[in-house]
Computed example of a mutant assay.
Amino acid sequence: MKKIFFLMVMSSISLQGFAQEINKSKFKAVPPKESKIKKEIPPAESAPKGNPPALVAKPNPLEINPEELFSDSALYKKESNSEGVFYRRNQYLGSFATKSFTSTIRYRDAAFVDGDKIKVYLNDKVIEPEVDLDSEFGGFKINLVPGTNKIDFEALNEGFAAPNTAEFQVYDDQGAVIFGSQWNVGTGYKATIILVKE
């Protein structure tokens, strides 16, 4: 048993001495080799010479120039206002955006009921050939196409008291008023409103 104990002590001493030798050695790390590949620096960006091209803005369908709108003599009678007579001209009533699929247009004689008559166009096509304006609201419903929907009210006469006058209202498909106003135009002239379906 003494021999076994002696062997164990000797082997632990020798292992401990061997372990200490490893720890005593000085380890030197190998330095990395210098890379032969040089990093390329990208060239500095230079500003383009001259002015950049102007951006083409998408035309706003709500911005309508009445002079351009009424310039087509095949569709609109030329203005012929004489001194003191302001209603012998076409009247632009405005452009309005809506998300509605349909719109209801209502109108009536705005002043004295004197036999005023109108013709109604939608995108230059007749939808009401002759309408007598009276004191009660009349009207129609239209299906709106995406984009521009132009509604023209042409005065067929001026009744007994010039000019042709009417009050009108435009409603969306929920019954909310989009716009309401009046027109005052002479015979053969048109009052125009534009609805832009978004």
Rank of each mutant, 00 (worst) to 15 (best):
G84Q: 01
E167H: 15
F6G: 01
S82Q: 08
I37F: 15
Q16S: 14
P31H: 05
V131T: 11
F6R: 02
K28F: 15
T165N: 13
R108V: 03
A54L: 15
I64S: 01
S95V: 05
K150V: 12
F18A: 08
L133E: 04
S12G: 02
S100Q: 03
L133V: 08
S14G: 09
D152R: 08
K38Q: 08
K58N: 09
F168C: 14
N23Y: 07
G159P: 09
K26F: 13
A110N: 04
T104M: 12
A161C: 07
E45C: 07
L93P: 04
F112D: 15
N51V: 14
P129R: 03
V120W: 04
G17V: 10
F86E: 10
E40I: 15
Q174P: 02
Q20T: 10
A44D: 09
L55Y: 08
A155S: 05
D109T: 00
I127N: 10
G188L: 02
Q182S: 05
P163Y: 08
L62H: 01
V56A: 07
D173I: 04
E136V: 15
V145L: 14
A29S: 14
N51F: 14
K117D: 11
Y107K: 01
P129M: 03
A166M: 08
S11C: 04
D109N: 01
N65Y: 02
K2Y: 06
E21V: 06
K3G: 10
L122P: 13
I118C: 04
E128F: 04
F160K: 14
T148K: 15
N23P: 00
W183P: 06
S80P: 06
